[in-house]
């Protein structure tokens, strides 16, 4: 306590008072000039010290929080590139379809019809129709980014693909998740806590839109394993869920519908 008292009541270096008293005794003014060379040099030294310390802290920063911020920046940047290329691809596909349609006007009517049907079946063309929207969102409340182990209140990729599986089982004709149309090549995966669909990170709430029979899809889904699963997610883990029937849902076409290694069987190599 004495130490703290001492600090609080006499914070000023006692030498100041002592030397002032000495000068007064010698008949001089109690204080010296502020602008002496000594003071100025010390001031420069202190300024330098402050700047150097601040500079070294700033330079060290990227090793801690900065790396994550940097990574997030890079991801956002590249995700923008991906979005931009997706849009360009969609535009090119449309141009090609237009050119084809013009050239095939007479000869390939059956081919055009076949392509249109295949577009729906593969998920490469945008479709609309009645259906169901299942929405899943993490349990509200702060999450600890450094928490280890499984956070039960977070939606996992497994939750999403089980719901999707239930929707296909209930007769859905086309499905997209947060604007990512599902094709035969669409993985629903995770990277840690992030969910990736079609190799793009998507963020909650996860909206799974399915087009299908408006009279049967809601009922069949409610009876399916997927429907029961959605209910248990909200009952047991506090995940915010909703299942809504809608008259008009539009789903975008998938961006990437190509194959690199598979060839038609029977056509030779």
């Amino acid at each position: 306590m004495t130490l703290i008292n001492e600090m609080l009541t006499r914070p000023l270096d006692p030498s100041y008072a002592a030397s002032a008293a000495r000068r007064v005794a010698a008949g001089e003014p109690p204080h010296t000039s502020v602008g002496t060379v000594l003071v100025t040099l010390t001031a420069i030294l202190i300024g330098l010290l402050l700047a150097v310390a601040a500079g070294s802290v700033r330079r060290d920063a990227p090793t801690a929080q900065g790396v994550r911020a940097e990574l997030i920046d890079q991801i956002t940047e590249r995700r923008d590139v991906v979005e931009e290329r997706s849009r360009a691809i969609a535009a090119r596909q449309q141009e090609i379809a237009g050119l084809e349609a013009a050239s095939l006007a007479g000869a390939g009517a059956s081919l055009t019809a076949r392509l249109q049907r295949l577009g729906i079946d593969t998920g490469s063309s945008a479709v609309e129709g009645p259906g169901l929207i299942v929405s899943l969102a993490d349990r509200p409340g702060p999450a600890d980014p450094e928490a280890t182990g499984v956070d039960q209140g977070k939606v996992l990729s497994r939750d999403v693909f089980i719901v999707v599986n239930g929707l296909w089982q209930s007769g859905a004709e086309a499905i997209s998740i947060n604007g990512q149309r599902l094709t035969v090549r669409s993985p629903i995966r995770f990277a840690g806590a992030a969910i990736l669909v079609n190799f793009r990170p998507i963020s909650p709430p996860y909206e799974i839109s399915a087009i299908g029979d408006p009279d049967q899809l809601p009922e069949l889904f409610a009876q399916s394993v997927g429907g029961a699963y959605v209910k248990s997610l909200s009952d047991n883990f506090g995940i915010v869920t909703s299942v809504t029937a809608k008259d008009d849902i539009s789903l975008p076409g998938a961006t990437r519908v190509s194959i690199d290694r598979a060839r038609p069987l029977g056509n030779g190599s």
């Binding site: 994550r68 990574l71 997030i72 890079q74 806590a193 990170p201 963020s203």
Partner: peptide, 15 residues
């Protein structure tokens, strides 16, 4: 929200 809640190694995977 979104990416901000991810750990560093997860972010590397996403990137």
């Amino acid at each position: 929200s979104g990416l901000e809640s991810l750990r560093e190694q997860d972010l590397v995977g996403v990137l």
